[in-house]
Structure formats: structure tokens, C-alpha cells
Amino acid sequence: MTETPVENMSFEQAMQELETVVGKLERGDVALDASISLYERGALLKKRCEDELKRAEEKVAAITLDANGAATGTQPLDAG
């Protein structure tokens, strides 16, 4: 596990650490106090991944295409 604040992690970093946390919790070889801390960290990592995925989906949804099907840029989600 890293000491990097969850809010500063990329999607890939958060997902990798989340997999590590889940693996440790599934093995059950962690003391109760450590398990609680791991679970809390895992919950934060899960939320970070969900937020980053939502942000990426919104960007993809906002891409506009011209008459030839070429991307012309993005527009605000509430436009149109």
C-alpha cells in the first residue's frame, strides 16, 4: 500500500491499490484493526475509481462529430 492520498491518485494507481487491499482482506491474515483500516482505504479507493470512470464517460459523451464523422471537439454536457 502507498501513502499517496487517494484524491491524488490516477485511476490506474487507485485500481491497483484497491486490488491489493481486496487481496489482503480476502486472505484474512490481517489483524482486526488493520482490516478496518484496509476496508476504509478500500472504500476511498473504490469511490476514486468510480469518480474517475464517471468523469471519463462524461468526456466521451461530450465529444461531438461533424458531418463526416470526425471529432470536432467537445461541448458542455448540458448543451444541446
Rank of each mutant, 00 (worst) to 15 (best):
L65N: 05
G42R: 09
N68M: 06
E57I: 06
L45K: 04
G28N: 07
V22M: 02
E7H: 12
G80M: 07
K59N: 15
T20I: 10
G69L: 03
E50M: 00
Y39Q: 10
E17Q: 06
E26N: 09
G69F: 07
T4W: 05
L44W: 05
L32E: 13
N68F: 08
A43G: 00
S35T: 11
E50G: 00
D33S: 15
T4Y: 07
L45M: 01
D78V: 12
K24D: 12
I36N: 13
R27W: 01
I63H: 00
D66W: 03
R27Y: 02
D51V: 03
R48N: 02
E3T: 13
F11I: 08
E57P: 14
A71P: 15
K24L: 12
E17F: 07
V22I: 12
L45S: 07
R55F: 09
A70C: 13
P5Y: 06
P76A: 02
G23W: 12
A31W: 00
E3K: 15
V6R: 04
N8L: 14
M15D: 03
D51S: 05
D78K: 13
T2R: 08
R27A: 09
L38R: 01
A56G: 11
P5H: 09
N68S: 02
R48D: 05
A62N: 10
T74F: 00
G28F: 01
E50I: 00
E7R: 10
Y39I: 01
E7Y: 11
T2H: 10
Q75Y: 09
P5W: 05
L18H: 06
M9P: 02
L45C: 05
M1Y: 08
V21M: 04
V60Q: 14
A56C: 12
S37K: 12
D33V: 13
E26T: 11
R48S: 03
Q75T: 15
G80N: 10
K54L: 11
A70S: 14
E17K: 00
V30P: 00
V30A: 03
A79W: 04
E26F: 05
P76Q: 01
N68G: 02
A61C: 13
L18N: 03
V21N: 06
A62Y: 15
V21Q: 01
R55I: 01
G80E: 10
G69K: 00
L44P: 06
L45T: 01
T64E: 08
A14I: 03
T72Q: 15
A70Q: 14
S35A: 15
A14D: 03
A62P: 15
D33Q: 13
M15A: 09
K47W: 11
E19F: 00
E50Q: 03
E7I: 02
S10R: 02
E52V: 15
R55G: 05
N68H: 07
A31L: 08
T64P: 02
L38M: 00
K54T: 11
T72F: 12
T74M: 05
A62E: 06
K54V: 04
T74A: 09
G28R: 05
I63N: 08
E17W: 08
